[in-house]
């Protein structure tokens, strides 16, 4: 149970990632928020942007690309990307459900919600559906304790979850109707 899979990992992108002009302008805007010579400060934000731009996860190629932009060593990017739990360092589905399972959510039934989603999608926590649409994860406290249970998908917090609401959410993502 507690034995570790050792890095190095093998997940790769086949092509070298590259921000488009608009994305690059945003990267430069973020870097400019820091004093001269302190552009490493932009790292976390750029990693979020890179994840969004290049398939929802950070491949070695993506991280090396970010290192190149910020003129830092790749290891400095790997260290940061693996420290912060929001970053996916392996491929994930199109929609990542992160269900909060910390105390306040647990008190009002997050465990049942997790089981419900597992059954509904036919996957366990940590897995991705065969169609590549959904990845299910658990997360530690996401700051929605008063509106629990909840799950986060991208920038959206889905709160006050019930099985019926979970059905609706999954249906909405499946049909591409994601205007919540």
């Amino acid at each position: 149970m507690s034995s570790h899979k050792h890095t190095p990992i093998s997940a790769r992108h086949t092509e070298k990632p590259s921000f488009n002009a608009e994305q690059m302008a945003e990267v430069q805007r973020v870097i400019a928020q820091y004093p001269e010579g302190k552009s490493k400060s932009a790292l976390i934000r750029i990693l979020h942007m890179a994840e969004e731009a290049f398939g929802g996860w950070l491949s070695i190629e993506t991280m090396d690309y970010v290192a190149e932009i910020l003129k830092i060593q790749p290891i400095e990017v790997y260290e940061v990307a693996t420290f912060y739990t929001m970053f996916n360092i392996e491929p994930v589905g199109k929609y990542v459900f992160e269900v909060c399972h910390t105390g306040p959510c647990m008190l009002v039934g997050s465990d049942n919600i997790i089981t419900y989603i597992e059954n509904k999608l036919g996957i366990k926590v940590g897995e991705t559906t065969k169609d590549g649409l959904f990845t299910l994860k658990t997360a530690e406290c996401l700051g929605a304790c008063g509106y629990a249970p909840m799950l986060q998908c991208g920038k959206i917090f889905h709160e006050h979850l019930t099985p019926e609401k979970v059905d609706q959410i999954i249906e909405a993502y499946r049909s591409g109707n994601t205007n919540f």
């Binding site: 890095t7 290891i75 790997y78 693996t82 420290f83």
Partner: peptide, 8 residues
Amino acid sequence: RVHGILHR
């Protein structure tokens, strides 16, 4: 430096 501390 090519090695470091990963994960947490």
